[in-house]
């Protein structure tokens, strides 16, 4: 159905607004439409898509190795504290005159060991920084690829890139790559958006949700991605809807769905079954079905047309704020 690879990312800025619920519904409906597709969970610090899709076991699990962790050799250390001074992340802690390196913070950058006058710092190499997991066929037919970072490890964005590459390989050429992004606008989200064509932005009508929508939208503009908007829990604060709609109009973002707050959503999560399946006649299910049908049935078949219509006119620039040297030379 698709003549090339199309990457569609579901993102929101704010957490807990319904990314995984929207992603799972869209995935199920797109599969019903017969798309060749793979779903990828790109929230490696809090991967939840498999839970929503009722995936309890994996067909393949590959350990993901990345980086190093520094540690101090106690018998060589003179407790001079140079390592604590130079560590860029404050990972070296002092406890009763002795120093140790917090392994949940250290990124293994070697700055401490270069500076240690006693050569008392060593590295644990080949640290298992997480997992990449594959379910070859969910009960809805499509494969799911999911990444999970080891708690306290850095650079989850790198793992997200690996997850996307793995998912692309599973997809094998043309088809739909459906990506469930993390909350925020940092490394994980940047990795999710890199190379994407379309984005479903999910928000809720609260000032916090709106503030984060604007942040994530600016980032999609930087990557020249065509956005569409889903307003979730739209009835929890209806007076605020106008503010969001006005923004969407001014920024040329089509609103593709409004989903009501519905206790059926958390209830279905507890069952480990997508809400559209657990409570098909609930208001949220009907709305999710409608928005997914719109995306899978109308937007995706003509995604190039959609993209040229809603792609930002110009990219939002990334301007690094580099200062000149202030100390010397």
């Amino acid at each position: 159905m698709l003549d090339s690879k199309v990457e569609l990312v579901v993102a929101s800025g704010k957490g807990g607004v319904g990314k995984s619920t929207v992603t799972s519904s869209l995935a199920i409906v797109a599969a019903e439409h017969g798309y060749k597709m793979v779903a990828a969970d790109a929230d490696a610090e809090a991967p939840n898509l498999h839970i929503v899709l009722g995936v309890a076991s994996w067909d393949r699990e590959e350990p993901y190795y990345e980086g190093r962790v520094a540690y101090i050799l106690e018998d060589k250390c003179t407790n001079c504290g140079v390592c604590a001074e130079v560590c860029p992340l404050g990972a070296v802690e002092e406890k009763g005159g002795k120093y140790w390196i917090n392994p949940f913070i250290c990124e293994g950058c070697i700055t401490c060991s270069i500076n240690c006058p006693e050569h008392a710092i060593r590295y644990k190499h080949r640290v298992q920084a997480g997992w990449i997991r594959l379910r070859e066929k969910t009960k809805y037919g499509f494969p799911l690829v999911s990444g999970e970072i080891t708690p306290g490890r850095p650079n989850s964005g790198k793992l997200v890139t690996e997850v996307k590459n793995y998912a692309s390989k599973v997809l094998g050429g043309e088809g739909l790559l459906l990506v469930d992004a993390a909350a925020g606008i940092g490394c994980q989200v940047i990795s999710s958006l890199t190379g994407a064509h379309l984005a479903v932005l999910v928000t809720e009508p609260t000032p916090a949700g709106f503030s984060d929508l604007q942040r994530i939208h600016r980032l999609t503009k930087h990557f020249m991605i065509a956005p569409m908007l889903v307003i979730n829990k739209y009835d929890i604060n209806e007076e605020f809807i106008e503010t969001i709609e006005e923004y969407a109009r001014a920024e040329n973002i089509p609103i593709v769905g409004r989903i009501p707050y519905d206790p059926a959503v958390p209830k279905s999560m507890a069952k480990g079954v997508p809400v559209m399946e657990a409570y098909p006649s609930s208001p949220a299910s009907k709305a999710l079905k409608e928005v997914s049908e719109k995306i899978a049935g109308e937007i995706l078949p003509k995604w190039r047309e959609f993209r040229s219509k809603y792609k930002p006119r110009k990219p939002e620039p990334y301007i690094p704020l580099i200062l000149h040297d202030t100390s010397r030379g």
Binding site: I51, I105, C106, G152, P154, Q188, M269, A270
Partner: peptide, 28 residues
Amino acid sequence: TGAGTGNSISIAIQYSDLVVAVTEPTPL
């Protein structure tokens, strides 16, 4: 702190006398 479980979160909670982990009654 922000959402997530990476080292940014460990840095945010470092040196705490008490960590309060806020969760919700879902499997997620």
